[in-house]
Design a protein around this nucleic acid. Structure first.
Length: 556
RNA sequence: GCGCUCGUCGUUCAAUGGAUAGGACGCAAGAUUGCGGAUCUUGCGAUGCAGGUUCGAUUCCUGCCGAGCGCACCA
């Protein structure tokens, strides 16, 4: 196990407690909690679970433990009982000491190794597969990005979903060969994809044999990227062929699997169609083949899943979709389990984003498209930025506004539990105050500005013991919790835990900033210690925002 | 009809069965020329209803009320 700053302190407390109190034999680190108010202490032990084996009621037990003497004196300055809780007050420098040490490598702080040795694949729709990209889809992408980062930070190896790059040079080669050697030809019906593959192979071979063709190919690529009319039209046509080809291939593969399932007696025929009866599991009926023998989504999914597990050798797979597909994924996972796949499969269903007037529906035109919303927020942010910084260049204002808008949208999507319906209020999306992305960026910018001004302060040994103010201690202990939060957010597939954490960090920094002057600290030593604390808080905030997929800006 | 999810201040969200139910928005009042007022401080203000389990329930169980979603040839 990697040792987090708080792990070091918690395990010292736990070990010492166990040494002195036999009835706490099974005590684990995660039994320690954080008091609701720091006036109680910094870390607490609830005594409910041990009361029975100790033969006392929880409050008596807490008192007995507290009175038995100070434990883990390297870190703890006082122990006191409050009702059924034993509260530990940490020494002023304890937290800051471990925190500063851990932050010597800020990029690693926040990581943990609970997923070590496991490969995971996270699937969520890629933005460019949707033409009508509305704010509901934004939620999906934000969750996907944040979870990918979280899983990485928790030590998982990510298997990348192979989103075919359909604007690359291989496509240009194919189009070039098509135009040069097969202009006007019609591919055989139903075998377009295969034919296209042959054309590509031919083109690649000829290009290798005749390097003088290279400029022609790069011209095609340029035209492709600049959306030249002729090339672009051809590209759209060929892409449709190859997608259809891929889909057909997958579907054929799926039908073979369905046949196997029938043979094994897992699936059966019913009303002419092929189904798996999952009534016993409470999942109803899963339809695998239509009565006319043609395939369905589920047919392809079986094949895709098999391919995924075999090819990428993953241990876990995660699908992020709209919550309405929950039942379908239960069925799919059950079907895969019946076919012998033991990998851990998780479906994360997120609730809708709805408008104050009701659900979004393209039928009634009640949709908010991502691009429109984004532009509107950018405009509001630009106006606000211009007001504050009239001297900034148009370019800088535009960049800042863009970052603010993205932060606002993304944070807005991630700050709530995925299984809660989000009521998307435009007024709220346009606000930059309170529990919002821009507030976090503002805090970051202030930290940055403050640290810039401290560059002239002479460096020297930092005496963490000088951080004795309640604001300083609270900020330090909260900052030190990042690794725990990252792990918990990963385990629960819930980035909102991290979002709430980051916001709380900013709130605590706000209090510290108000009460503990850094540039005009009582003396130089206190100033140096505070600078170190600000640096620590900034690293933690930076790390949190990066994990959430929110870009940072230095000033705003 | 069956199943899943959800009901917490005016609004919108928090709270491993545990300490005084916590934020944000809005509202009201305030922050000595001081590190960025997109900030900070203070106040007002809530667990749908009825039972049950428990030393203790916003949390678990049952019923009711209310909202949303899903339940075989669509994707």
């Amino acid at each position: 196990m990697k040792k987090h700053p708080l792990h070091i302190i918690k395990s010292a407390i736990v070990e010492d407690l166990k040494k002195h109190h036999a009835f706490l034999g099974a005590l684990a680190e995660d039994a320690l909690v954080y008091p609701p108010d720091t006036k109680f202490g910094d870390i607490a032990l609830p005594c409910f679970a041990y009361a029975q084996s100790a033969g006392k009621n929880p409050a008596e037990l807490a008192r007995a433990i507290a009175e038995s003497g100070v434990v883990a004196s390297e870190w703890v300055s006082a122990v006191n009982a409050a009702g059924p809780y034993v509260n530990f007050v940490l020494k002023g420098d304890a937290l800051a000491r471990v925190l500063f040490a851990a932050l010597k490598k800020p990029a690693l702080f926040g990581t943990n190794d609970f997923g070590k040795g496991e490969r995971v694949m996270i699937e969520y729709p890629s933005p460019n597969t949707h033409k009508e990209f509305h704010i509901g889809h934004v939620r999906n992408v934000c969750l996907g990005v944040a979870l990918t980062h979280l899983y990485e930070a928790s030590g998982f190896k990510m298997a990348q979903v192979d989103y075919t790059n359909d604007l690359g040079s291989h496509v240009a080669k194919c189009l070039w060969a098509l135009m040069k050697f097969h202009k006007g030809e019609k591919p055989p019906r139903g075998r377009e994809a295969r034919w296209l593959g042959a054309v590509y192979a031919e083109g690649a071979q000829k290009l290798e044999a005749h390097p003088e063709y290279a400029p022609e190919v790069s011209e095609v690529l340029q035209k492709l990227e600049s959306r030249d009319k002729v090339v672009h039209t051809l590209w759209k046509k060929t892409r449709a062929w190859s997608i259809k080809g891929m889909n057909d291939e997958v579907k054929d593969e799926g039908k073979k699997i369905v046949a196997e399932l029938l043979k094994k007696g897992i699936a059966k025929k019913s009303q002419g169609a092929v189904i798996i009866d999952m009534e016993a599991q409470g999942f109803g009926i899963m339809l695998l083949l239509k009565s006319d023998g043609t395939g369905l989504y589920s047919t392809s999914d079986l094949a895709l899943a098999r391919k995924k597990f075999k090819l990428f050798k993953i241990d876990r797979s995660i699908n992020i979709t709209d919550v309405r597909q929950s039942l379908y994924f239960k069925q799919l996972f059950h079907a895969l389990a019946l076919s012998g796949f033991t990998q851990k499969m998780t479906h994360i269903g997120y609730e809708f984003v709805r408008l104050p007037e009701g659900a979004m529906a393209s039928r009634t035109g009640r949709v908010i498209l991502y691009e429109d919303m984004r532009d509107e927020i950018i405009e509001a942010a630009a106006e606000e930025t211009k007001k504050r910084h009239p001297e900034w260049s148009a370019r800088k204002i535009a960049d800042t506004a863009h970052a603010l808008a993205l932060a606002g949208l993304k944070f807005g999507m991630l700050k709530y539990d995925p299984n809660k319906v989000i009521v998307f209020d435009k007024k709220e999306a346009l606000s930059f105050e309170g529990f919002t992305g821009p507030y976090l960026l503002y805090t970051f910018a202030r930290m940055n500005s403050l640290l810039k001004k401290t560059r002239s302060v002479a460096r020297g040994l930092v005496d963490a013991a000088l951080l004795a103010d309640a604001h300083e201690k609270q900020l330090a202990i909260h900052a030190a919790r990042l690794p725990e939060i990252v792990q918990s957010a990963t385990e629960n597939n819930n980035p909102s835990e991290l979002a709430q954490y980051a916001y709380k960090l900013c709130q605590l920094f706000g209090g510290f900033y108000e009460h503990c002057p850094v540039l005009r600290a009582p003396n130089e030593d206190v100033g140096r210690a505070r600078i170190a604390l600000v640096q620590a808080a900034q690293s933690v905030l930076e790390q949190s925002l990066k994990l959430l997929g929110i870009p940072l800006i230095q000033e705003m």
